[in-house]
Amino acid sequence: MSDKTIARCIKVSLAVVLALVLLVAGCKKAPPEGGNDVPPRPGDTTEKTGDASAVKPADADTSAEMVAIDIKLPKPMFVGTPQSFQGVANLEKALGKPRPPFYAPKGTVNISVGKPVRASDEEPIIGEIEMITDGDKEAADGSYVELGPFLQYVSIDLGAECDIYAIVLWHYHKQARVYRDVVVQVADDADFIANVHTVFNNDDDNSAGLGTGGDKNYVETSEGKLIDAKGVRGRYVRCYSNGNSSNDLNNYIEVEVFGKPAK
């Protein structure tokens, strides 16, 4: 390559660069009024000045630290030919993986264990009402309560007003079943008149008479049904059901309410 050729190449290159620079310059416009938005603070490893120190949480309730609530689950109990759920509309799809724990403020515990329970059917077909808060979540005989047909409910008195973050509900998991018209409410009074909050409702045709809900039907498993109570405040928790995909009866193994006393 001769010097002349190289010099020509350089000249051409410079001309191209100059043209491109002019192209860029030609695209310029006046800077926006008021300057630019503050960008996210760059974590430039080469130039970090450290002036973006962490801001202490303002007015944060430091007593309310996060804890992962890992629910102790019973043994799976599905036996025999799996149930067919033909005809069950709006059915939640199985995930095929375990449900992760949920997070709640520090101090959140199962506040329903051992608490008094009332039921719409005062004389269950099988079991005792107290079994619903006895901490036994197994599906074996002797661990569940069977209430009569049609719409039934169980109510738990937490003893005092509480902040409720989650409710976990086990109807029956010895067999894959779908319970109908599952509605869960929280209220200030035992009769569910004052300050009633519905935290779950999969009754899509108002057959329970409590209003229609947008939640899905679900298959009972040993994991129970985790319901987000959204920090609702109340003293009483009531769970309704209206038979199931196998028969018209209503079963309850356990109801766990996770929360803490209201301040």
Binding site: A60, T62, E65, G231, V232
Partner: peptide, 27 residues
């Protein structure tokens, strides 16, 4: 490092009945 303060803030910012339950995003 900010997990404890984070949940405090999440629950402080939302009123009762609107406090979402959080679960892990990653497996």
């Amino acid at each position: 490092d900010v997990e404890d303060a984070l949940i405090a803030q999440l629950y402080a910012l939302a009123p009762p009945g609107e406090k979402n339950l959080y679960m892990p995003l990653f497996d």
